[in-house]
């Protein structure tokens, strides 16, 4: 299956070959970001629309810059200042936008599965920029791209994902992507924040981060999603920090050359200490640059060529 003209909704549904194609294309496109003139004419005349029903700084900006660097026009729609406030439904909003000649829709929404729903409503390709607790496939791809920057191959790589697995679409996309490409993924978090059947996805689950991080090449720290905690799933931020916050001591369980990743935005002093976040082993800011290159590749692969 090719990406051209198709949706990108999840890494669960994406083949390893398509993921490799995105990664190798992004590898070529990354060079454009270091040019004095950051623009190639490839997607001239194409229009992409970002629909964000949830706050975002990184992902939205990253998609819009990726589109502009490829010479596509990017328009954005944010729920806070639109007719959504007047009660317009998602399907109606999207249909209206597509009637204005948009070639691709990029959506973030708090409801899991909303991008799949949108893809059924619209004839144009839909890219998932995060749907509820389901997936954030472009984040998964940019994380794998960043790991490849430092670790050269994914097969056999030991990746420890620590934190709020239950609410994390980032964790799910990483788990689907990494296991498909042959990494060994272990996860750790408070028992209340670990989905009960998570090991069926091909990962090893641990109650303590030290166990998951034993011999890890990559330590992936998740954001504690305070806004998604409807009920108390852990006693306090301080207790979370003591047991699951990644500090220098816990990090000593990972390999000496392990890299540290985080999808942002960070709660410094909660899930990660400032000295770890800012240490030379932290590649958190590289993830941001990778994100633009990976999204340029995705836009090129979906929109380039004839329908």
């Amino acid at each position: 299956m090719s990406l051209r003209g198709n949706d990108l909704l999840s890494l669960r549904e994406m083949s390893a070959e398509d993921m490799e194609l995105v990664l190798s294309t992004a590898r070529s496109l990354k060079e454009i970001l270091s040019r004095p003139i950051k623009k190639v004419p490839t997607l001239r005349g194409k229009v992409v629309c970002t629909l964000f029903y949830e706050p975002s700084t990184r992902t939205k900006t990253s998609f819009e810059l990726a589109a502009r660097y490829m010479s596509a026009d990017a328009v954005s729609f944010s729920s806070a200042t639109s007719a959504v406030r007047k009660g317009e439904s998602l399907a109606d909003t999207a249909r209206n936008l597509s009637m204005m000649g948009i070639d691709l829709a990029i959506m973030r929404h708090s409801v899991s599965g909303s991008c799949h729903f949108l893809s059924k409503v619209l004839d144009i390709p839909v890219v998932n920029a995060g749907d509820g607790m389901n997936e954030h496939p472009t984040q998964g791809l940019l994380d794998i791209f960043t790991m490849l920057d430092y670790k050269s191959k994914i097969r056999g790589l030991k990746v420890a994902i620590v934190g709020d697995i239950l609410h994390s679409r980032v964790a799910r996309s990483n788990i689907f992507g990494l296991t498909k490409m042959g990494a060994e993924v272990s996860i750790a978090g408070p028992l209340t924040l670990l989905p009960p059947d998570i090991e069926r996805l091909g990962v090893k689950a641990f109650a303590r981060p030290e166990e998951a991080m034993e011999g890890a090449d990559v330590v992936y720290v998740l954001r504690l999603q305070l806004e998604r905690q409807a009920r108390s799933l852990f006693p306090s931020k301080r207790e979370y920090r003591d047991f699951f916050g990644i500090d220098r001591h816990k990090l000593s369980y990972a390999k000496d050359d392990a890299i540290i990743m985080h999808p942002g935005p960070m709660n410094r002093g909660v899930e990660i200490t400032t000295d770890v976040a800012d240490s030379p082993r932290s590649v958190i800011l590289d993830q941001v640059t990778s994100g633009v290159a990976v999204r340029m590749a995705i836009l090129y692969l979906i929109l380039g060529g004839r329908d």
Binding site: S2, R4, S24, T25, R27, S28, L29, E31, V40, P41, T42, M70, A297, Y300, L301, G304, G305, R306
Partner: peptide
């Protein structure tokens, strides 16, 4: 030099050319 991104037939081709690296 990889010229894929500058082709004038990108939207006319059925197969999508691979993007190589410019170094």
């Amino acid at each position: 030099l990889d010229i894929t991104l500058y082709r004038d037939d990108l939207t006319l081709r059925f197969e999508q050319p691979h993007v190589g690296r410019t170094v």
